[in-house]
Computed example of a mutant assay.
Amino acid sequence: MKKKLTSRYVDTVTAPGPKRLEVYDQTLPGFGIRVSTSGGKTWFCSPRVNGCIKRIKIGTYPALALSEARDRARELLRDIQLGVAPANKPTTLGEVVPQFIELWAKPRNRGWKEQERLLNQKWVRLFDKSLEDIERSEVVRILDEIVANGTPGRANHALAALKKLLNWCLDRGIIKANPIAGLNPPTKPKARDRILTDAELSALWSTAEDEGYPFGTLTQILVLTGQRRGEVSEMRWSQVDFATATWTIPAERAKNGIAHDVPLSPAVIDILSGMPRFAGSDLVFTTTGTTPVSGFGRAKDRFDQAIGSNDWWFHDLRRTAVSGMARLGVSPHVIEKVLNHKSGIISGVAAVYNRYSYADEKREALEQWAAENLKIKNRASSGRTK
């Protein structure tokens, strides 16, 4: 967030939560104030040193007034422009998180937003600590609290995100040792086997129809195609061929790095044909025209109420589609082709030599699954869904 900082604004600004607020000064680029959810306010500047963005803490407000902090930031930024490196202060976790996201997570991980959210939410209590001073016992204590709150899976994900960050810091020489090297996940990961019942699927579909664009229609396409949420939410109009009723997921957007043709049933074509389009935007699901839709959590809360359960994830819709197609008699190798799986029934040497696309079989499978969803919906309307 950028704003011309004034004494009045600095005195009254608060962090709306759940994350801290960072405001960059329009008067002096690179200078800003960080406001924690507890109300603390810290001045900082963010110059680029040796190709990396470095966060330098200047002081706290009100001990240091706006004019004093801005003058100090101007001095630091000037020194760096002249080639005088700032004092080699210990790097805090809060300073290194944005660097890690920009330099490592974004270029390599399609799920970088989730990593950023986990780091900013679960480890914020350690943000003011030097990386060298983070103790293993502190990390374990935070993980124990996450587990105690009833989200053991979230604790595992939070630990994985922190491990990646600290290993990255170790590789770059920012730290000499990883304080949580070898730390086991707090709980044993459990493979999910959740699928939605016909009654739940019908309730979800009805709510999705009422919800409309973007989350309702997106959810309907998740159900009917069995593709990953990230792939559907990042769909482009240029990838959809209405003439052949095919959606092509390019290799760079597919999770396994393999381009994938998804046959679109008439039900999906009808949904896409009735959707709004942003002028000048190629994104199918967007509220800005420039970025894919986000904020699935709030939409899921509404779907939870309709289903009567919160014990499901959007990814479970993929598993539900797989189970539904298997119930209809679709062969396992065809289902794998629908999912764009690399390994499984067709793997090893067979995968190298079997280049048949199974396009017709995939189309028939997805059309059968779409027809089955219509039957499930009709049975629910007649009061016969179980």
Rank of each mutant, 00 (worst) to 15 (best):
S323Y: 03
R363G: 09
P62G: 06
R8M: 12
P292S: 03
A370V: 02
K188C: 03
R141N: 13
W247P: 14
L170D: 04
D360M: 10
K89P: 07
Q220S: 09
K163H: 05
E22F: 12
H341V: 09
S233Y: 09
I80H: 10
R229F: 15
A245Y: 06
G344D: 07
L21N: 07
A199Q: 12
P214R: 07
D210Y: 12
T92R: 02
N354G: 14
S46V: 08
T42N: 10
K362N: 04
M1L: 11
A177F: 15
A259H: 03
R108Y: 05
T197F: 02
M1E: 06
E114W: 09
A306C: 07
P263C: 03
R154C: 09
N109V: 11
A65E: 15
G32I: 05
K41V: 01
T244V: 05
V35Q: 03
N50G: 12
D282R: 11
P186D: 00
T246L: 11
I307Q: 03
A370G: 08
I146D: 00
K89M: 13
I80K: 07
P185Q: 01
G297S: 11
A350F: 11
E367W: 06
L328W: 01
Q121R: 15
R70M: 03
V284R: 01
L5S: 06
